[in-house]
């Protein structure tokens, strides 16, 4: 299957996003660990990429050389990636429920080589954009025109390597490299603005030579539109600052950033399920 259909049904995608949120809830609750709130904040971004006609991919031929790449640089959102890849047909949904268990390829953070569709080992933040640039340069040498999408966490953008990669990508005029920042405004220990501010964020990216767009990161139609728009940018890489809500979809998680690195209790999970199904 190659997803290139332009006539996407936004309501169907919203339902799909809802199903991913439920999968993330079930996976992390069963594993009794993980990062549900960081996973929920990027669900619409992944839905738009994989099911909104943006990424070209073949689940039956996962390493098809011409595929577009998606690199989950914020590796702690692995449950979101796994849920989306399973729905896209890369592997059985049954595997989702083995998250974080011994003998499972569904590791707590993504490990390259264990599952089809997982392009990179991530979990130490800051590495994905550089890996993406490597894929861009490799594509040039191979004469291929695929695009490379890298999802960055906002806290991750405090890492120096992100800016090493940003400088290099502009230097190499990597206009098929697209960063998306899941700007949910919280990092592990608190609000970004309090812990280590990123603002003025847009100016930083522009100063490094990037084309910048902003979008509501939970508006699937708007995401698709901006993801299509950045494909037209020439001569410079592009970044989409996606304004999101950490824990999106579950009110008491949205209201409490300390859910960053912990799963919901079974009781909380039941309440979350009710909200997500509303």
């Amino acid at each position: 299957m190659t997803v290139t259909d332009q006539s996407v049904d936004i309501n169907a995608l919203k339902e799909l996003a809802r199903s991913f949120r439920l999968d993330i809830l079930d996976m992390t609750t069963k594993a009794a660990s993980g990062h549900p709130s960081s996973s929920w904040s990027c669900v619409e971004i992944l839905t738009a990429l994989y099911f909104g006609g943006i990424l070209r991919y073949h689940p039956d031929d996962p390493w098809w050389p011409e595929r577009d790449r998606f690199i989950m640089s914020k590796g702690h959102a692995a449950p979101a990636l796994y849920a989306v890849l399973a729905a896209a047909g890369y592997f059985s949904r049954d595997l989702l429920w083995t998250l974080r268990q011994v003998d499972s390829p569904v590791q707590g953070h993504p490990i390259q080589g264990l599952l089809p569709g997982v392009e990179a080992t991530t979990g130490s933040l800051g590495q994905g954009l550089s890996l993406g640039l490597g894929h861009v340069l490799g594509g040039r040498l191979n004469g291929l025109t695929y695009r490379v999408y890298v999802l960055l966490g906002d806290g991750e953008c405090q890492a120096g390597q992100v800016w090493e990669a940003a400088m290099a990508a502009a230097h190499f005029k990597a206009d098929n490299l697209h960063a998306i920042v899941d700007y949910n405004k919280y990092q592990e220990t608190g609000p970004i603005s309090r812990e280590m501010a990123l603002e003025p964020f847009i100016e930083k990216w522009r100063g490094f030579g990037w084309h910048v767009e902003e979008v509501d990161g939970h508006d699937i139609a708007a995401l698709i539109e901006v993801l299509q728009a950045v494909q037209q940018v020439q001569g410079q890489p592009s970044v989409i600052i996606a304004h999101t809500v950490k824990g999106k979809g579950v009110s008491f998680v949205e209201a409490d950033y300390t859910f960053h690195g912990r799963a919901l209790t079974p009781e909380q999970a039941a309440r979350a399920r009710e909200e997500l199904l509303r």
Binding site: L133, G134, H135, A168
Partner: peptide, 26 residues
């Protein structure tokens, strides 16, 4: 020259760009 990349003085980026090229079969 087309197979030589100077990534500058930024070793973290250097290593990961190399890993990305390896993933492309180089």
């Amino acid at each position: 020259p087309e197979r030589f990349f100077n990534l500058g003085i930024a070793e973290s980026n250097l290593v990961c760009v190399g890993a990305g090229l390896a993933a492309c079969g180089f």
